[in-house]
């Protein structure tokens, strides 16, 4: 299904009607699962992701467990959070069979999924204060309900929100989004505009990258580019991506604050002394 990229130059509108620097609608909720330590639900356009965090809990026999669990555990430990005395961040990603058009079943040991898990684990352990929870495991399980591009970004954002909900100490939000370029690699178009937040169709046709930054800073935690693109275009794409991450961070921040305010209003939590002067906006 070739994407008619020539149309962009006429109206400067993308296939779904967005301009180059527009994010898709992001809708997020936290504390969706009452039984979990932390949970979130996140939509970036049509990409829908659910996340449940358990922990920090005592790491049990997981480390020496059987193949399935150990494989995930071993991979999850990649983030540098596995050092003795630091909490281990174990991530599992499940792509629901109905989440994409082709209904292709991807096994648990699919290398792409293992890579996703390892990336998320490593990215979050750089923000989470894992040294505060020695010898414990933070287990993050992510379920992808619907895929429409920017999958890694959505997973990272959902995991961040769920970790905030779980009350795990962290340096700052890990905010992620994608950026692309308007013309294909082959077009060799020097004037290609950067694009923010790519959907599935754009991801298939155009070069793009996923960026995750630490909160409002320009510091990049994750940078993944899987397509061929000229070096000269990287700067523009990265700049747009980092800027998008800041917008995403603000949206997530709003979601968290809104939830906090509602919980106070509903009396779900006591308004303690310290919360008196909390900024509720």
């Amino acid at each position: 299904m070739p994407l008619d990229t020539s149309a962009y130059n006429l109206a400067l509108l993308r296939v779904d009607g967005r301009r180059w620097n527009e994010l898709r609608r992001i809708h997020a909720q936290i504390r969706t699962q009452p039984a979990a330590d932390g949970s979130s639900y996140l939509e970036m356009g049509h990409t829908k992701v659910m996340c449940v965090v358990t922990g920090p809990s005592e790491s049990g026999a997981r480390r020496v467990g059987t193949t399935g669990g150990a494989a995930a555990g071993a991979l999850g430990s990649g983030g540098g959070g596995s050092r003795d005395g630091d909490a281990e961040v174990v991530v599992s990603v499940v792509l629901a069979g109905f989440s994409s058009v082709d209904r292709k079943r991807r096994g648990r040991n699919d290398k792409g999924i293992l890579e996703l898990q390892s990336t998320i684990s490593s990215a979050l352990s750089s923000s989470l204060h894992t040294h505060l929870y020695p010898r414990s495991t933070i287990s993050i399980s992510l379920h992808v309900l619907s895929q429409d591009g920017s999958l890694l970004a959505a997973l990272l954002n959902a995991a961040t929100l769920a970790c905030i909900d779980a009350g795990i100490a962290m340096t700052d939000y890990v905010a992620a989004c994608t950026a692309g370029s308007t013309s294909t690699y082959a077009a060799n178009d020097e004037k290609a505009d950067p694009l923010l937040d790519m959907n599935h169709q754009e991801e298939q046709e155009l070069p793009g990258l996923t960026v995750a930054t630490l909160g409002q800073s320009d510091r990049v935690i994750v940078l993944v580019c899987e397509s061929r693109v000229q070096v000269s275009r990287l700067e523009g794409m990265l700049a747009v991506g980092v800027d998008g991450c800041k917008q995403v961070r603000d949206i997530m921040d709003k979601v968290v604050r809104e939830k906090g305010r509602r919980m106070l209003e509903e009396g779900a939590i006591e308004k303690g002394v310290g919360l008196e002067d909390m900024d509720l906006d």
Partner: peptide, 12 residues
């Protein structure tokens, strides 16, 4: 031409 970039987590 960049064929791939992978900074998979780690310190910012």
């Amino acid at each position: 031409e960049i064929c791939q970039i992978a900074k998979l987590g780690g310190t910012a």
